[in-house]
Write a protein that binds this DNA or RNA. Structure first.
Lengths: 232, 232
DNA sequence: TCAAAAGTGTTAAGCCTACACCCATGA
DNA sequence: TCATGGGTGTAGGCTTAACACTTTTGA
């Protein structure tokens, strides 16, 4: 920013934090990872995982750090959502919070670490009461996720490398909160031609087994360069 | 945010600012209002109008304050876009900047005030070099505006109360950066049934004159409650 | 009378939606 | 052999895109 008077000196400085909305998908529904506060205020209540912005750290760095602390994961899909600035949002001290949502492959996270932080996965429909404005943050992140997944192929970040058409469909159904006809869904996805159909089948969900697919990231990126846009 | 240790004390505090991307429409193209720095560093260069977050002020408050200072306008459409946190983005002192875009009716702004701040309206295609990361901020805001205008009836914020179909079309054409067939455009807009066609004509643009319209906000809001969604 | 912008419908193509049956297999 | 989930195609309706001529009137 640029003030029209250059008085950086007299200005108030504030605590700046990031809070992470961590999404995972367990083959049936979308969940978020919350931690239980073991200190006052609001001890015993649930909250998002967060951390203060350090000197020489961007907010994205900070979000990655927080995420690695809790899940052990690096190189996770992260997107900044919104910044919350109400002077009274944190009763202890004024804190500006920048939120990020993260999409992780739920089976990859380090359970030891999350246990250490008293973390727990909650279904989106059964989130407990959250501290401060964290529920609002979650809602905002869900809306952004809905938009983004329907317009960019980021849903795959929530799935294992190899997944069935049914898993993919279920993922979109839970994110978009609507039922989709399986024939129409397959048609649409196949038309876009960004999946690689493997020989392999997943035998865990049915007797017949269902084919596994992979997202063809390179192909997608090439197509995107040519003006193709993902749309679900 | 909630840290897993409650050490608010030792944390770094930072300057927090807002920067405003102010959009206006002059019946031909979309423009933004920039100010010329009259102090070092980067004296003489152009930048967004911004200001530091004050104690007891939300970022939205701050953006409104900045906006009123420069344009004299209150109750302007404002939307938060993104927060920039690179430790080196401002060479003077580390500053986190939260951006907002504003949509104003260009003819309503107070020219005296903007003159006092050495402000100038620039066509989006002819923006001068901007300081720091302000060009990136502008680009991000334009993208958000594109999305938002095509999905919510906020374009009207840029037009006078009464406008012609042609002005409206031109507005969308410049925002979306594509030509639209006038018959198809009128059809789409009329189908949504959110405009009031007035008896009055605007005679300034042609000999025949063209009918003026108004956005029927109440009607739109009622329809929105019933599940209608604006889509262009 | 001519130039310039306003206003107005139709058709074809593509897309989306709804819908039902057979297949493979393990229990 | 049966119960379970996997896989596949078509037809109708709807939406979108392309397209050209007449009207009005001030200069």
């Amino acid at each position: 920013m640029v003030s029209f008077v250059s008085n950086y000196q007299d200005q108030t400085q504030l605590l700046v934090a990031v809070d992470c909305i961590i999404f995972g998908f367990d083959n049936d529904e979308v969940k978020i990872l919350l931690i239980k506060r073991n200190f006052e205020p609001e001890k015993g209540k649930w909250s998002l995982m967060g951390g203060f912005l350090q000197p020489n750290e961007t907010a994205t760095n900070a979000a990655n750090r927080v995420l690695e602390t809790l899940t052990g994961l690096q190189d996770v899909y992260l997107e900044q959502v919104h910044t919350y600035t109400d002077p009274n949002r944190d009763p202890v001290e004024r804190t500006v919070s920048i939120t990020y949502y993260a999409l992780i492959k739920i089976e990859d996270h380090n359970e030891e670490l999350s246990k250490q932080h008293s973390a727990h996965w909650f279904s989106l429909k059964e989130t407990p009461e959250l501290i401060f404005d964290h529920q609002q943050m979650v809602n905002h992140a869900i809306n952004r996720l809905r938009y983004k997944t329907s317009v960019q192929p980021i849903g795959f970040e929530l799935l294992p490398e190899k997944f069935t058409m049914r898993q993919l469909q279920k993922l979109y159904e839970t994110i978009l909160n609507e039922e989709i006809d399986k024939r129409n869904f397959a048609k649409k996805i196949n038309q876009m031609d960004v999946l690689i159909k493997l020989e392999e089948k997943d035998m865990s969900s049915s007797k017949k087994g269902s084919f596994l697919f992979q997202f063809d990231k390179d192909k997608y990126e090439n197509m995107a360069k040519e003006g193709f846009s993902f749309k679900l």
